[in-house]
């Protein structure tokens, strides 16, 4: 009988203890970019925010492009409060995966992935993630066209002021001696 009780009760007791024991802190990790986000612009960094204090020195946060190449800029993320931030250098549009393995100050551990998509290619020649600032040269063709556009507008405005409505364009172009009233509309 005692043997039977042990066989039946022991698993029940152990199961109950396990079920009723406080669960580890919820892994309610929030990422920025959010999981599944489709971004118009490539982010300069990704941030993971936890409900517990992470230990940056014992954690890894990597960002991988669609073909598996890392685009993260640093070997170790930077901690700020409950967040870990990893700078990234994304050179082209595509799908990206944040892969993380995080140790917490309370001894816990969490790992997982988050995905996001970048819809638009950053500027040709790379992103500003490396320098923190992108310098673009003014496109000479575009600049010239814009100047031409402005000149056309200026010339047209000037001509509109110079040639008031009702002026006879034909007579205006003729020598004064040849200007006749019959050039005008009937």
């Amino acid at each position: 009988m005692l043997r039977l009780l042990r066989i039946v009760l022991l698993p029940l007791v152990v199961g109950s203890v396990l079920l009723l024991a406080p669960a580890p802190a919820a892994a309610a990790t929030v990422s920025n970019p959010a999981d599944g986000a489709a971004l118009a612009a490539a982010p300069r960094q990704v941030t993971l925010t936890f409900t517990r204090e992470p230990v940056a020195e014992a954690s890894q946060v990597s960002v991988l492009s669609g073909d598996g190449r890392p685009v993260s800029e640093s070997a170790q993320p930077v901690r700020a409060g409950l967040s870990l931030t990893q700078p990234v250098g994304i050179a082209r549009a595509g799908d990206f995966t944040i892969v993380y393995s995080v140790k917490f100050a309370d001894g816990g551990h969490e790992q997982g992935t988050r995905r996001f998509r970048v819809l638009t290619d950053p500027a040709p020649g790379g992103t500003d993630a490396h320098a923190g600032h992108t310098a673009h040269d003014v496109d000479p063709v575009s600049a010239t066209l814009l100047v031409v556009d402005g000149l056309v507008v200026l010339v047209v405005v000037f001509l509109l002021i110079l040639r008031r409505p009702g002026a006879d364009p034909v007579a205006w172009r003729l020598p004064s001696a040849e200007r006749k009233s019959d050039d005008r509309t009937a």
């Binding site: 118009a40 612009a41 970048v118 638009t120 500027a123 673009h136 496109d139």
Partner: peptide, 16 residues
């Protein structure tokens, strides 16, 4: 024009 200004004067990344 604002987009051109953002890129060439403010040096914003094009997607932004």
């Amino acid at each position: 024009l604002v987009q051109a200004y953002q890129i060439w004067v403010l040096n914003k990344p094009r997607p932004q």
